Amino acid sequence: MITCYVQYELNPSKTPEFEEYARVWIPLVEKFGGTHHGYYLPHESPNDLAVCLFSFPSLADYEAYRIKSLTDSACQKAYKFAEDTDCIKRYDRHFLRPLEMPS
């Protein structure tokens, strides 16, 4: 399994728009075979920081999702919403693997 950790720099005046964007992406990740672990929004922290985590069975499965998302109409609508509302200033993706516990 591979988990994608995305760190967002938000436009603080557009947090409600980012929340709308995030709500759309949770089922989209799941539509393409991923497991979404949620979005985490600013609270008693910098007002421009948000993160999300989602997992796919493998990096290859994640890559397939990325390719499919480029032509999926719902994904394109979500990308355009973020662009039109300017709710995201930047984002960084990191890929993590879970710690395997000995049996």
Rank of each mutant, 00 (worst) to 15 (best):
Q7I: 06
Y21A: 02
K31C: 12
A64H: 00
G38C: 06
Y65M: 10
L10G: 05
Y8M: 10
S69D: 00
E63P: 02
Y40D: 03
K68G: 00
A22P: 06
K77S: 11
F95A: 09
L70T: 04
T85E: 11
A50H: 15
Q76A: 11
E9C: 09
P57R: 13
W25M: 10
F18N: 02
A82L: 06
T71S: 11
P102G: 05
F18E: 00
R90Y: 02
L59G: 11
T3Q: 01
L28G: 03
N11P: 03
Q7S: 10
P46I: 04
C87R: 10
F81A: 04
F81D: 01
C4G: 01
G38P: 01
K77Y: 09
S45F: 09
Q76D: 05
L59Q: 13
K31S: 13
A50C: 13
Q76F: 08
L49A: 15
E20Q: 14
V6K: 02
C52K: 01
C52Y: 04
A78N: 14
S45V: 10
P102I: 14
P98Q: 11
P57A: 11
Y39T: 04
E63D: 15
L49I: 15
A64V: 05
W25E: 06
E17K: 12
Y39R: 05
K31D: 12
P46V: 04
L70C: 04
Y40V: 09
Y62V: 06
L53G: 01
Y91K: 13
H43C: 10
Y91N: 10
Q76M: 14
L53W: 10
E19S: 02
Y21N: 04
K80R: 15
P16Q: 08
K77C: 07
F18D: 02
R90D: 09
G38L: 06
L53Q: 05
K89E: 01
P57Q: 11
D61V: 05
T85M: 09
P102E: 11
Y39E: 06
P46W: 08
P42S: 06
L99N: 03
C87P: 08
A50G: 13
Q76W: 09
C87G: 07
E17I: 02
W25V: 01
Q7R: 14
L70Y: 00
F56K: 10
R23V: 05
K80L: 14
I67D: 02
I26L: 07
A64T: 08
L59R: 14
S45L: 12
K68E: 06
I67G: 00
W25G: 00
S73Q: 13
Y8L: 09
Y39D: 10
